[in-house]
Design a protein around this nucleic acid. Structure first.
Lengths: 216, 216
DNA sequence: ATGTAAATAGGGCAGTTGCCCCATAGTATT
DNA sequence: AATACTATGGGGCAACTGCCCTATTTACAT
């Protein structure tokens, strides 16, 4: 079984270096490369028969963390390993939060990179030891990074919060209506408004976003 | 530079197996072994010129987690790698909280064990990929670690976990089918089976229960 | 070899959801 | 007084969901 891989890095020189490292292994096929996240997304829209993405973080237009979040949202089956020069806590934490399946540093040697890919495709996580240590520290001492730019003023009314709370319990419109002594129509309307405010289109998304923002 | 190592395991058979694995490497010296935590502590009181401890978790008298906490409190410079047969979330999380510098499984081969020791002594953390993945999930999911009664054996197939992961992104059956190259009917069937196994009746419930159990 | 489990795929159907349309009343801000 | 927001309620409709039925193929364990 082959591994179909994409590389995303704004430095075409480094893309070449990564390709070269992977060239030793016959079962790794570099399907395509991109210079930033939006380029990758365009390619994925056309064909998502891809196993894994090696993703830089610092990139113009759409950076690696944002791109990871979007790719994982739309194509959760595609594995993503961050491959970057920077290993500060914030990058690591944000990459993990965005859904990265691994985090490696660019100085990595070919064998280790290959192993990381194999391990990730095998259902594990690729990490070099120094990164692993940082994740352990983050687990011990949860670094509370307030949701970055996600701070876009979300203000739900009291009623909307009540409805959202019920939604999070997997109750139907009808059941919510009964619980809150409303008509189902009103519940539906509230939910429509909630969706608009949160910019989502389903129960699950609404509940998850609300939880991220500590609304419920 | 040599690595002075101690082994703590209530199974003397397994101590022997570990010693054998380490015997291939000249720079690893097994200073002493103990059958439980209190025995180790006594030995450390007399001489703590030790670099690293390979620690089992399940032990009588003083288990590996408690022992780790005590050792790290008194001798923080001594590295501790958990070396156990069990990789449940609770053990992993508690070991990390107790201050473990790594977490490996007993089936590990000699080379990997040696690498883990070297990496740990080099300021990193030793972890095999499946453990690494669990720590990432714990980082993403800061909440719920225990819930005793929730422990009712949930065993989803690999495919079912994949589908559940997609479900958690609020994707429709159709979108999931496209992502996983399946027919929508198959996706529906998987979801039916997931619901039965988790004893739930909706997307939201399934996703929430899966998260509580660190399945996704 | 034989049974169990998993993975695949399809049909049918009632009920739910998400998203439009519409309206009225109260409250608060300006 | 006018505007904005919130809360309330309703109709319609395509799409999606949850749950039942069936079936074949592969793989693994007894």
């Amino acid at each position: 079984m082959n591994f179909r891989v994409a590389i995303v890095d704004d430095n075409s020189f480094l893309i070449h270096a990564i390709k070269e490292k992977l060239s030793f292994f016959d079962d790794v096929i570099v399907k395509h490369t991109s210079l930033d996240g939006s380029e990758l997304l365009t390619k994925l829209e056309n064909s998502h028969n891809l196993d894994l993405i090696l993703m830089d973080i610092e990139m113009p237009v759409l950076n690696g963390i944002e791109t990871t979040q979007i790719v994982k949202q739309k194509f959760p089956q595609i594995k993503i390993i961050m491959l970057t020069a920077f290993d500060n806590d914030e990058n690591i934490f944000n990459a993990i939060k965005a859904g990265a399946d691994g985090y490696l540093l660019k100085e990595i040697n070919p064998d280790q990179l290959y192993n990381g890919i194999k391990e990730t495709m095998n259902g594990g996580a690729a990490m070099n030891p120094s990164i692993a240590l940082k994740t352990l520290k983050l687990l011990r001492n949860p670094l509370h990074i307030d949701n970055q730019k996600d701070k876009e003023e979300i203000s739900l009314s009291k009623r909307e919060v009540e409805v959202l709370e019920q939604l999070s319990k997997a109750l139907s419109y009808k059941a919510i209506a009964e619980n809150l002594f409303l008509s189902p129509s009103t519940v539906r309307k509230h939910i429509e408004n909630i969706y608009k405010k949160l910019q989502v289109h389903s129960k699950i998304e609404a509940v998850q976003k609300a939880k991220r923002h500590n609304i419920i």
